[in-house]
Nucleic acid binder design. Structure first.
Length: 573
RNA sequence: CGGGGUGUAGCGCAGCCUGGUAGCGCAACUGCUUUGGGAGCAGUGGGUCGGGGGUUCGAAUCCCUCCACCCCGACCA
């Protein structure tokens, strides 16, 4: 490809509304253009990368025995009503009506459609297991689309759905998918981690997320330095090593005017946050009979953070988690937030393991401007119910007992999940077993955010000059930069001949034949992240050399012209 | 949805407070010079100042309204 025939559309300045580096670089490099909120056009340069991601995904899915198909983006409401998700899904589901007034949605995912297909197509256990996948455009009407294609409303996803007669078969395919995903992310050349994710009510290791590691990632993942344990912070179990000490202090009330936060209380009393207890008041779950608690108190050590996912799984707590409002708290407890504590509190009290292990701690006195010191469970107030309700922090022991936890940030690009019979039961997807009896099948589903992978690769691999593509994802693998292409016949001949050779060899080479000065040419090739660069100039040719530089090399090197083809082959292999 | 902010040329911005008919840099186009790290000079084109309404002799500027976009959003006890 020659730049003069490729719509290379780079920008020197960063568009003001792009917040994160991948979004900025994708705009500056001319990979994408915004059409409306959360909707993007992929320009030729960006599409080349997207297609490379797709190709690797497709090859590895095929290798793992999955079968590609393609389902419609628009889906009839009846299927969603059948699964119950027409009501459950909420405003993220884009709904529309056709000219006859029939209701449809634009698919955010395809469990209903694939399950419907399956029940019409497959009748016998002999046809199982089956694993279908597609690479297709999805639409989710996000509350707040942002970060370019990282969190777009319309995006490209690979979604796969497997069908099985029993749990063992599902587990085998699940393991195959785990292996295939690992191969896919290995081939991308990205630094990634599979992590255990919310395993839900079924129990066991039924879900893994694949995260591309990047400091800007939206998810926190916890991993052990002593084993291969890795889990989303949302679900990583927080263990308390400390044993509660004996009380050594009496309980006292102290004046703490204007001290509302843990930080302010600690500064005032000269204590570390680890010696304090904070009390959060959340809405209770009224339960089926309506006799559940209206409010519930959750106690954490002062330096810890509440984990909402864990908290809302508690039977007393309303899901989704809702903090009580200030007015409500004042009417029930009689003080403002900032002065609440569990002593004498007429609410169910649930303490995190570490909060329950405190002795002689400081907490709010349920009276504005006052705190209690030297408080001890069992002596000054009843023993609390104990639960794991905090986020793990750096240095916590690993839940598998091996090593300590570190925290990394990641971008979720893949998710594999054992669905069970949620959809197959609701939609009566059954096959006949060996006894001729109808059996409901069990399902797995497996997603990869194809367009998000592109953004995540950039988040992980860039410098102040632009993108640094891993070889497998680069839109072009080799940039040919001739200096004075339009003036020097020798340079032009050499560059054209080499370019032609590259095409024969199947090398994605980009020849920059624009009449630009070298600096401008180099800057563009670095911005779009081409991994290898070859320069031809009169000066070099006269000395019998060409110049080579890898995208992340410090300096360029001069290489003898005779070695050109062998040298390039070596670099690309 | 709530809070905050921004809409002026393809991109980045100034002008608005204190009304007087729109400007800078980059990009684009033409010509000449230049050619190893985003060249120089000269010239050219491109804007119903987000839309609508109002005030005024006169509105990018003041007022009202709608729209779009961006950011933040219970970890506080």
């Amino acid at each position: 490809m020659k730049t003069s025939r490729f719509h290379l559309s780079t920008m020197k300045e960063t568009p003001a509304d792009a917040e994160i580096v991948s979004h900025q670089l994708m705009l500056r490099a001319g990979m994408i253009r915004r059409l409306a909120s959360g909707l993007y056009t992929w320009l030729p340069l960006g599409l080349r990368v997207l297609r490379k991601v797709e190709a690797i995904v497709r090859e590895e899915m095929n290798r793992a025995g999955a079968l590609e198909l393609l389902m419609p983006a628009v889906q009839p409401a009846e299927l969603w009503q059948e699964s119950g998700r027409w009501e459950q899904y909420g405003p993220e589901l884009l709904r529309l009506k056709d000219r006859h007034g029939r209701e449809f949605c634009i698919g955010p995912t395809h469990e209903e459609v694939i399950t419907d297909l399956f029940r019409r197509e497959v009748k016998s256990y002999k046809q199982l297991p089956l694993n279908f996948y597609q690479i297709q455009t999805k639409f989710r009407d996000e509350i707040r689309p942002r970060f370019g294609v990282m969190r777009a409303r319309e995006f490209v996803m690979k979604d796969a759905y497997s069908f099985h007669l029993d749990a063992e078969s599902l587990q085998r395919t699940y393991d195959d998918m785990f292996t295939a995903y690992s191969r896919i992310f290995d081939r991308f050349g990205l630094d990634y981690r599979p992590v255990a994710a919310d395993s839900g009510a079924i129990g066991g290791n039924t879900s893994h997320e694949f995260h591309v590691l990047a400091d800007s990632g939206e998810d926190a993942i916890a991993f052990s330095d002593g084993s291969d344990y890795a889990a989303n912070v949302e679900m990583a179990e927080a263990i308390c090593e400390q044993k509660r000490g004996e009380p050594t202090q009496d309980m006292h009330t102290v004046d703490t005017p204007n001290a509302h936060t843990i930080e302010e209380v600690c500064a005032l009393l000269g204590l570390p946050a680890e010696q304090t207890l904070k009390t959060l008041i959340v809405r209770g779950d009224p339960g089926e009979d309506g006799n559940g608690p209206e409010l519930v108190a959750l106690c954490l050590r002062g330096d810890h953070e509440l984990n909402a996912v864990k908290a809302e799984k508690l039977p007393q707590v309303a899901a989704p988690l809702q903090m009580a409002d200030a007015e409500h708290i004042r009417s029930v407890i009689g003080c403002d937030i900032g002065s609440i504590g569990p002593v004498g509190l007429n609410l169910p009290v649930i303490a995190d393991r570490c909060a329950a292990a405190l002795a002689d701690f400081v907490c709010g006195a349920n009276e504005n401007g006052k705190h209690l010191t030297g408080v001890n469970w069992g002596r000054d107030l009843p023993e609390p119910e104990v639960a794991d309700i905090r986020n793990v922090v750096e240095g916590d022991p690993s839940p598998d007992g091996k090593g300590r936890l570190g925290i990394l940030r990641g971008i979720e690009v893949g998710h594999i999940f054992q669905l069970g019979d949620k959809y197959s039961r609701a939609m009566k997807a059954e096959v006949l077993d060996e006894n001729g009896k109808a059996r409901t099948v069990t399902m797995g589903c497996y997603g990869i955010g194809v367009s998000r992978v592109v953004a995540a690769a950039i988040e992980q691999n860039h410098d102040d000059r632009g993108i640094i593509w891993p070889m497998a994802l680069a839109p072009f693998t080799l940039a040919i930069c001739p200096i004075n292409y339009h003036k020097s016949e020798a340079v032009r001949n050499e560059a054209d001949a080499f370019h032609a050779w590259c095409l024969e060899q199947g090398i994605d080479a980009l020849l920059d034949d624009r009449p630009l000065r070298p600096g401008a040419m180099f800057a563009d090739m670095e911005l779009i992240g081409v991994p290898h660069r070859v320069v031809f100039s009169d000066r070099g040719l006269q000395a019998g050399n060409f110049e080579y530089k890898g995208r992340s090399d410090e300096a360029s090197e001069n290489v003898a012209l005779e070695r050109l083809k062998a040298f390039v082959r070596e670099k690309l292999d």
